[in-house]
Design a protein around this nucleic acid. Structure first.
Lengths: 226, 226
DNA sequence: GGACAATTGTTCAATATCGAACAGCGCCGC
DNA sequence: GCGGCGCTGTTCGATATTGAACAATTGTCC
């Protein structure tokens, strides 16, 4: 697990360097809080690189319901799915706070990766993505909502957590509503479980709205309620 | 949609050609029905190419529950997730019938793709995979089981369907139990819905256990029950 | 051909989940 | 400071889903 993280981090750094070169002449785009980077159907085939901010990817079903697929932070790349060549975005990308992005046309993106011999690295990166998504799917299918919420929290913590001294980890701001759309349950339900986790001292709300997740305790609890 | 299918089919053919060259000297491995190609934790970093047969990929949760991730048929490649470099399989790959596979070490696989200038094609292929999985996730999160079963049937039909003259499509053998693990519900529930679909003439059971899916009718029905 | 195993159709009570409602609370803008 | 608004915590009846059980049916292996 650890060496894997460092490996993929390594590629991420290389890719960041590569993209930095590619975009150093263009100026970043500012996206205000709650504004969209793109919406379903948009044909613009570009990849985005986050310099600063938070971007969430949400997919809407034919009725009104939504599903939050991911949250991306500084240094992340998103919108790479236009590489699939099937044209037209499937999800909505929205800024969760004022953000600054660099935009790279999808063909340029590939060319640059090729030039810098990063194609294989990118394949590895995509393979990790596929594996992660498989885990999400298996989770949605096999376990109940409390468990799903727990594992989702752990995933987010691992992605965004600054390693706090006491083996605890800190967070970004995500509403219960949003958690609901990741986990596949309703907001009240999320509230109840979050409360339960809090009472059991598996998570905490920091003085200022930051979620603290006690990775070990939470993991232990989740396996205990199988 | 249509040009996309043909594009990815085109890459698939190129990849098949490429792999055919790579493996023409090695003889295929036979996997008997119900036997495993690999199981979780296996470290063997190889990619498989199906010459004949059906292979299912199943992920098991910590308790006993299972989730069927995919079914692959002749010409398909699976096990590519070892390219992620995180070592150890996550799922179980099982033959649904006697199958013949070619096995390619993961490094050889990449080398060959590179030699044949197929790296970008493979990236596109993986991007499509990620997009498909996103759709699956959104489905699991946003809609109810009947709807999910319906869309799952459509997905399978599109993957395996031989285009029957009357805009209908034929199938592989999948048990209700297995469908349950794809859709995230229980077997009895699948039975009920399948029965309902049958009564509404959205699907049929062929004289010999082959499922026939009436794509248009089923699609129409699914949108009608939003 | 017959017996056993696997698959399907169906039921039911127990349980989990939804969704609508309402109250408290903190933040922001004015 | 004050109102409004968005987020949270909590409740509840209506509804969906589970899981266990039992026939009926089919397939399969000797």
């Amino acid at each position: 697990m650890i060496q894997e993280a460092s490996q993929s981090d390594q590629f991420k750094e290389q890719m960041q360097g590569s993209l930095f070169n590619e975009t150093k002449n263009s100026s970043p785009i500012k996206i205000g809080k709650h504004d969209h980077v793109y919406t379903p159907g948009d044909e613009r085939e570009t990849v985005y690189f986050i310099e600063k901010g938070q971007i969430k990817l949400v997919m809407a079903s034919s009725e009104g319901k939504e599903c939050m697929l991911a949250i991306h932070g500084p240094g992340d790349v998103f919108g790479e799915l236009c590489l699939s060549g099937l044209g037209g975005r499937l999800e909505t990308a929205t800024a969760m706070e004022d953000s600054f992005l660099k935009e790279i046309p999808c063909t340029k993106f590939l060319d640059r990766l090729a030039q810098d011999s990063l194609l294989e690295g990118f394949i590895k990166y995509l393979a990790v993505r596929v594996a992660d998504q498989q885990a999400v799917i298996a989770n949605l299918v096999t376990v109940d909502s409390e468990q799903r919420l727990g594992t989702t929290l752990l995933q987010i913590a691992r992605k965004f957590g600054k390693k706090d001294p006491r083996s605890i980890r800190i967070e970004v701001k995500i509403s219960h509503e949003e958690l609901g759309t990741m986990v596949g349950t309703t907001r009240p339900r999320v509230s109840v479980f979050m409360q339960r986790f809090r009472n059991l001292d598996l998570i905490e709300y920091n003085t200022e709205h930051h979620l603290i997740i006690k990775e070990k305790k939470l993991t232990a609890y989740l396996t205990s309620i199988l």
